[in-house]
């Protein structure tokens, strides 16, 4: 177990290495091998590497961080209590929350919950800071819009039913267990 030092060796100057034709043949050999390999897989209906987006999609790992969304409980309301932790933890200040009070069991809720998706950098600190599991990073990645106003997401656009976020919530509980 040691860190050694090794000198890199140049390939020797052979006669063949001064001939461009040999290099061309060698290069063609490598390329044709790749070509045949891919062709064989294509004929079999398997694909080695390329994914034809959007008809095919990659299988994203559970750790994937897409757009932050709000968890919608079964009664249709958001789980968020507008404590403002995500607003503080956000490095880019892209979240803005205005809290309000109700007479429900949970007395606080966000009257306004806006995320400026043109500023968001998908770091995931909002979900890590949240003490209520109310904001999580979803798998939603198609969030482009034609105007700046379109990239401002309001509370109603951000709510996602809790059943659809099960993978992420499970991952979160495992990731931040310790």
């Amino acid at each position: 177990m040691a860190i050694g030092v090794v000198t890199v060796k140049r390939p020797p100057e052979r006669w063949s290495s001064s001939q461009p034709y040999f290099a061309i043949l060698k290069g063609l050999g490598v390329s044709i091998r790749h070509f045949l390999h891919n062709l064989l897989l294509f004929a079999r209906g398997q694909q080695d590497f390329t994914v034809h987006f959007p008809e095919q999609r990659l299988v994203q790992p559970p750790a994937m961080r897409g757009m932050p969304v709000l968890v919608q409980m079964d009664n249709g309301k958001e789980r968020c209590v507008a404590c403002g932790m995500c607003e503080w933890a956000c490095p880019t200040n892209c979240i803005s929350i205005f809290p309000a009070e109700t007479n429900d069991e949970v007395e606080r809720y966000p009257e306004v919950f806006d995320i400026d998706m043109s500023r968001c950098m998908f770091c995931g600190f909002c979900e890590e800071a949240c003490p209520e599991e109310a904001i999580v990073m979803s798998r939603q990645i198609e969030i482009a819009s034609y105007s700046r106003r379109g990239s401002l997401w309001h509370k109603q656009d951000l709510l996602v039913p809790v059943a659809e976020l099960k993978t992420r919530l499970d991952h979160l509980r495992r990731q931040y267990e310790h």
Partner: peptide, 17 residues
């Protein structure tokens, strides 16, 4: 100045001439 666990690992540093 080894940091993390690099001191316990077995690898080489390549140098040129």
């Amino acid at each position: 100045t080894p940091y993390l666990i690099y001191g316990d690992l077995d690898f080489d540093i390549p140098i040129g001439e």
